[in-house]
Computed example of a mutant assay.
Amino acid sequence: MKLGFDAKRVFHNTTGLGNYSRDTLRILAAQFPNHKYFLYNPKPGRVSRLTITTNMVLCMPKAKVWQKLSSLWRQKAIVKDLVTDKIEIYHGLTNELPIGIEKTNIKSVVTIHDLIFVRYPELYSYIDGKIHFKKFKRAAQVADKIIAISEQTKADIVEFLKVDAAKIEVIYQGCHAAFKEVYTNDQKQQIVEKYSLPSKYLLNVGTIQERKNLLTIVKAIKNTSHHLVVVGKETAYTEKVKAFIKANQMEDRIHFLQGVAMDELAMIYQMASIFIYPSIFEGFGIPIVEALYSKTPVISSKGSCFSEAGGPDSIYIEPHNDMALKQAILDIEESEILQNKMISNGLEYVQRFNDDVIGEQILKLYKSL
């Protein structure tokens, strides 16, 4: 098959949507090498985290006018290139499909990650919310199939976008191979020294924004001796967190890291005592999966999709209850039996997110079209 993909975020995004796009392409190209994978990128990329294999074709706007108007090309004019390239199935990896694809013979798939902008409109500007809703709804309506990355997202698509549930397949995200690797003590020690990591620490990973709820972790460990390592891009919300840290003289115990390579991040996960992810709402929660592969106990939030990612042996708390979080940390630390159970059962649970399982599910969906 000739398979086309919206690859913008493959080459321009280093976080969730970029990771999903890269992992999907990596899994498919490795597992099913006889197909051709056309990666449509509107302009030269600044992120080079995907190994380009011989069965991948990099595609940019063919006409000079669209090289200058790359955003418009991705939204609509790309369809002409898809027809020229004889693409059989086009997959919008990040919530969107180009206008007019429904008027061609090309079958289309769209992955919808979450509808947080509908559930929590206060976290988005009015204009951004309206634009997102229009794009997502149109893509969901014209797509031949929709991939939802969790049962929670599928339920939201049905409720808010009014789409028939039979059109939606739940296929979970893959996880980068770095988190499944075994690293030596020498390699880990190099990371400890490079980032001045404490000998024992709690870990939080993700963009530092209000929805991710970092402040609750900081409050939970305020009157303890715990160290917390935070890995993620900073936003305006970070200043609110740092103000609390400063007011409570916790600067020496909260460690902020950015620009961490994937293998470095994997080692940081593996050396953490507990991974804490008290987010308010997510489409899935891939950091939880990364932690389980890393054999690190997980505390996350009740509700949303978190138990789908974390399984029955992770601990879930009300996201704003810092006292419950503090108790959960202590419960894990004080019981080696509980630690071992969370690690072994978590590793068993997370095998459902292995590459071979996900690849088979995606290709089966493509073949159904």
Rank of each mutant, 00 (worst) to 15 (best):
A7M: 06
A7R: 02
R9N: 14
G16V: 06
N19I: 14
Y20G: 03
R22E: 15
T24C: 07
Q31C: 10
N34K: 15
F38Q: 07
F38G: 04
L39T: 01
K43M: 04
P44G: 07
P44L: 13
R49L: 15
T53I: 07
L58K: 13
M60D: 01
P61A: 14
K64E: 09
K68I: 12
K68A: 15
K68F: 13
L72Q: 14
K76Q: 05
D81S: 12
L82K: 07
E88K: 14
T94Y: 03
N95V: 04
E96G: 00
G100W: 11
G100S: 12
G100N: 10
I101V: 15
K103V: 02
I106G: 11
H113D: 00
H113E: 03
F117H: 15
F117C: 04
V118E: 13
S125P: 07
D128C: 01
G129W: 05
K130S: 09
I131E: 11
I131H: 02
H132I: 01
H132N: 15
F133A: 11
K134N: 10
K135T: 14
A139Y: 03
K154T: 08
D156W: 07
E169S: 12
V170M: 05
Q173G: 12
A178W: 02
K180G: 10
E181H: 12
E181N: 11
V182E: 13
V182C: 02
Y183R: 00
K188A: 12
Q189G: 00
Q190V: 15
V192C: 05
Y195S: 08
Y195I: 14
Y195D: 02
S199N: 15
L214P: 01
V218M: 09
K219P: 03
K219Y: 09
K222R: 11
K222M: 01
S225G: 11
V229P: 01
V231P: 00
A243M: 11
F244K: 13
A247P: 05
Q249T: 06
R253A: 04
L257M: 10
I268W: 06
F275C: 11
S279P: 12
V289A: 06
A291Y: 12
L292D: 05
K295L: 08
V298N: 12
I299E: 09
I299V: 14
G303N: 04
F306H: 08
E308F: 13
G310E: 03
M323A: 13
A324M: 10
Q327I: 07
A328M: 04
L338T: 09
N345A: 13
L347F: 14
D355S: 15
E360P: 00
Q361M: 10
Q361V: 03
I362Q: 01
L363D: 00
Y366V: 14
